[in-house]
């Protein structure tokens, strides 16, 4: 205060201060620019990937026909038959199954961790689940191949390589995502809601299921969407357990092939039209994920607005 009030020293300092301000402004601008560049990098990557996939994958729809590819039932690249409907179905079924399994178990785990578990127990469970997220997918696949697949074969028959095995493995793989996001959003439910419910005579479980979970639903939904994205995009683990037969699965115990495994298995040797068909598979996968994201975010935005 004193300095500003004193006219002489204020005058003296005026010049240096101006300089300092200008320097600070410059630094701010550079920092902003760098941040913008980083943000733009992500958008740029998306654009390049999308362009490349569509550029390589779309022409074949003109040559072979959209219907023949998307709704075609037969995948025989050597005979120029590129029907990928069985793979679309397999991808969908595996994802739905995995989410049904992973979301149920994951949500219950999150509820337990956020609301019920004693401190020491959550200190054991939480790191275990976080570690699950760090396991490479090929290890999941390997585990599925030597444990889950033989178990399915033993109890249900059919060899074990199946849609069911993929669902189980994918369900476990998406657990960490669903658990951690759901737990965070359950923990951020205001304590006032819980108090209000308990003060009305509700039990702890009633409070959790009727107040806390509904209040945390947008976060829980976000966790499920992310889990779904991981399940539909997962390749390696699925290849190892699903059997990879490009046929429409008739039951959970049938072998199947997903969109992702189709690309991964055949890309190394595919040429010409065959290669283009694999890119087309990528296009379908891409569109598929986009639609899924848009539909789900719209649904949950609406749910959020009603809130």
């Amino acid at each position: 205060m004193n300095r500003v009030c004193n006219p002489i020293s204020a005058d003296l300092e005026y010049g240096t201060q101006q300089k300092r301000f200008r320097l600070r402004n410059l630094k701010e601008h550079i920092a902003e620019g760098l941040l913008l560049l980083c943000a733009f990098l992500a958008v740029l990557s998306l654009l390049i990937i999308a362009t490349y996939i569509f550029y390589s994958g779309v022409p074949i729809f003109g040559k072979v026909g959209f219907k023949e590819i998307v709704f075609g039932m037969t995948w025989k690249p050597l005979e120029d038959m590129f029907g990928i409907f069985p793979m679309i179905a397999a991808s969908l079924l595996a994802t739905i199954g995995a989410v049904a399994f992973g979301a149920t178990v994951g949500l219950m785990t999150a509820v337990f961790l956020a609301e019920l578990a004693p401190l020491w127990l959550s200190k054991v469970i939480r790191p275990a689940i976080e570690l699950l997220a760090g396991i490479p997918s090929v290890v999941y696949g390997f585990f599925g191949l030597i444990v889950i697949v033989p178990l399915i074969d033993k109890y249900f028959g059919g060899g074990g390589n199946s849609l069911l095995a993929a669902i189980i493995i994918l369900g476990v793989m998406i657990l960490p995502t669903i658990v951690s996001i759901s737990e965070t959003s359950l923990r951020s439910v205001p304590i006032e809601y819980k108090e209000g419910s308990l003060a009305l005579g509700a039990s702890q479980l009633q409070t959790i299921f009727k107040v806390s979970i509904p209040a945390a639903r947008s976060g829980i939904a976000a966790g499920i969407i992310l889990g779904m994205g991981r399940a539909i995009g997962e390749t390696m683990a699925v290849i190892l357990v699903i059997g990879n037969t490009p046929q429409l699965p008739g039951s959970l115990l049938d072998r199947a092939r997903t969109l992702t495994s189709n690309i991964a298995i055949e890309m190394s040797y595919a040429q010409g039209l065959h290669q283009e068909a694999l890119f087309a598979t990528g296009v379908v996968l891409f569109v598929f994920i986009m639609i899924l994201n848009i539909v789900l975010t719209t649904i949950f935005r609406k749910a959020g607005e009603e809130k």
């Binding site: 108090e195 209000g196 419910s197 003060a199 009305l200 005579g201 509700a202 009727k210 509904p214 809130k307």
Partner: peptide, 29 residues
């Protein structure tokens, strides 16, 4: 006990649901 001794809090804490469901919450549980 809590059914017979109700409580109103310092900060209004309606549940994030409809007006109807808020009031019906207690009777429902």
């Amino acid at each position: 006990l809590r059914k017979r001794i109700g409580m109103v809090f310092q900060k209004p804490n309606p549940f994030p649901m409809s007006i109807y469901d808020n009031v019906a919450y207690g009777p429902r549980i």
